[in-house]
Write a protein that binds this DNA or RNA. Structure first.
Lengths: 128, 128
DNA sequence: CTCGATGCAAATAATTTGCACTGAT
DNA sequence: ATCAGTGCAAATTATTTGCATCGAG
């Protein structure tokens, strides 16, 4: 894979943050360094980089896709109040895939799971 | 809630099938009985009926939403080859919500999980 | 040098919305 | 009679694509 200046900037940015940015956010941030970059290029690169396994795409139903520089397998929770995405590393769901395989006689390739939560901060705010 | 002719037709159709139709499919089917119904009305009613808990919305990342007349809590698998949606009734994930609550100190409201599978039929076809 | 990558703008896909009218309660 | 619901068309949102040009290997 060629590493154009744009591709490198996009990869560096996604790898440098823990905020799970959307394509639009990546675009705005990379534009600080490279004002000529186009949104189409950002989309094409985020596609390519996640296909190649250098970053992870987080697909959340009815929301913009987000991207994660962390490629270690893990799940995500999203706060329904503030929208923050929270990493969940310790929840191993492999056994559930096995269960489903036996249950519906299907080969399970993967699963997409998102936990809809209220984060500690928003929970506290709600109590006031 | 008022039950207009359109709302009743949409509800009846979704309740009558096990195919997890999209809004567009519902629109096409209901139009057989009521050629004047509009797509906007179908979207508005599917929204309303799922908010009211009379039907279930199935949110699949990067795909059209689907709707399920079955309101008993259950999960779904989607075949990556033929796109068929398969119901999974016996897989209880409540304990996982509890696990996540303890793990990230969040209140877990719900989760959205989709299993990406190859269904038995497509698996067989692939072997030929 | 070559072909994959880019910038730009237009296109697409799914869904939502404004508005005047209609019909269920 | 009222106001939620409707049909229609235009708007919106997120993303993708065509095309001429550019630049990394």
């Amino acid at each position: 894979m060629k590493f154009s200046r744009q591709r490198q900037q996009i990869l560096d940015y996604v790898k440098s943050v823990k905020t799970h940015p959307t394509a639009e956010t990546v675009y705005k941030k990379v534009r600080d360094d490279n004002p000529n970059i186009s949104l189409g290029t950002v989309y094409r690169n985020l596609d390519k980089l996640s296909e190649e396994g250098l970053i992870t795409r987080i697909k959340i139903a009815n929301q913009k896709d987000r991207f994660d520089g962390d490629v270690i397998p893990h799940s995500h929770a999203i706060c329904e109040k503030c929208g923050k995405v929270i990493d969940i590393y310790t929840c191993n769901l492999d056994s559930i895939d096995k269960f489903v395989e036996n249950n519906i006689q299907c080969k399970v390739l993967s699963h997409d799971i998102i936990f809809n939560v209220i984060c500690p901060k928003c929970n506290k705010d709600g109590e006031e």
